[in-house]
């Protein structure tokens, strides 16, 4: 949405400061998932950046995906993406959600979130550090129009 003038500026400001995320594990090993949960806890506390972890796709702005997308979770991943109201962004967390990582070539993995959804930012690492996840989300927020 291209808001004009002051209203647009306020909306852009609000979007950058209030990204609510939804976490979906598409077949990861838990490593990135616990690091994502870790960002909520006292050491990293992303609430200070306005980031909240939501439980319903309808409330979310950003879909944080982990895992190389197994065949069984593909349909669910797409459905959850469709349930998120626009504007929405997708973040691929961890090596295997970027490219399939170490599971690339497995018979049951598609090899990365971008095989299913348009990904806005890739966060490498195995697992991605909480700092890397925060940095990635902030980098994404910078680009919000």
């Amino acid at each position: 949405m291209k808001g004009a003038g002051t209203v647009g500026a306020i909306i852009r400001w609000a979007r950058r400061r209030s990204p609510w995320v939804l976490h979906f594990n598409s077949g990861g090993c838990n490593g990135c998932d616990i690091e994502i949960v870790d960002t909520l806890t006292p050491r990293f506390d992303v609430e200070r950046l306005g980031i909240l972890k939501e439980s319903s796709p309808r409330h979310a702005d950003i879909l944080l995906c982990t895992g190389p997308v197994t065949r069984q979770s593909r349909a669910r991943l797409r459905r959850i993406y469709e349930q998120i109201p626009a504007p929405k962004w997708v973040v691929a967390v961890g090596g295997c959600s970027c490219s399939g990582g170490i599971f690339r070539g497995g018979y049951n993995v598609l090899g990365g979130i971008d095989q299913v959804l348009p990904v806005d930012i890739y966060i490498p690492g195995c697992p991605s550090r909480p700092e890397a996840i925060i940095e990635g989300i902030l980098q994404l927020l910078e680009t919000i129009e």
Binding site: C98, S99, D114, D120, I121, Y122, I123, P124, G125, S128, R129, E131, A132, E135, G136, Q139, L140, T143
Partner: peptide, 12 residues
Amino acid sequence: EFPRASPCRTAF
């Protein structure tokens, strides 16, 4: 030093 995120995979 942790690897930085990027919107484009070719950057990796």
